[in-house]
């Protein structure tokens, strides 16, 4: 697990709690353009597939997977940096 450094807070946090795959990744794809290149989007997801699918999406779509941390309620949060 990568631990993102504090300070580079996501510009956008997507609440995907309760969504099942592939919905969290669909939400990420829809919203990535809402942040500037170099800014981060965080996907808060209870779906176990997100741990594999968010990094895979980054690789396939040319974005940077920053790492996993947790939201305030302890739900996993997957952080993506828009690269293009």
């Amino acid at each position: 697990m990568t631990h993102p450094t504090p300070g580079d807070d996501p510009a956008l946090e997507l609440d995907c709690r309760g969504m099942r795959c592939p919905l969290p990744v669909i939400e990420l794809a829809r919203r990535i353009a809402d942040v500037e290149v170099g800014q981060q989007v965080a996907v808060v997801s209870t779906d176990v597939a997100s741990r594999t699918d968010v990094p895979a999406w980054c690789r396939m779509r040319g974005h940077t997977y920053v790492g996993e941390d947790v939201a305030e309620d302890g739900v996993p949060r997957f952080r993506v940096s828009r690269a293009r």
Binding site: C21, P22, V25, A49, R51, T52, D53, A56, W57, M60
Partner: peptide, 11 residues
């Protein structure tokens, strides 16, 4: 298997 490989699991 897909998880261990780190490849897309949906679809």
């Amino acid at each position: 298997v897909l998880e261990a490989m780190g490849v897309l699991t949906h679809g």
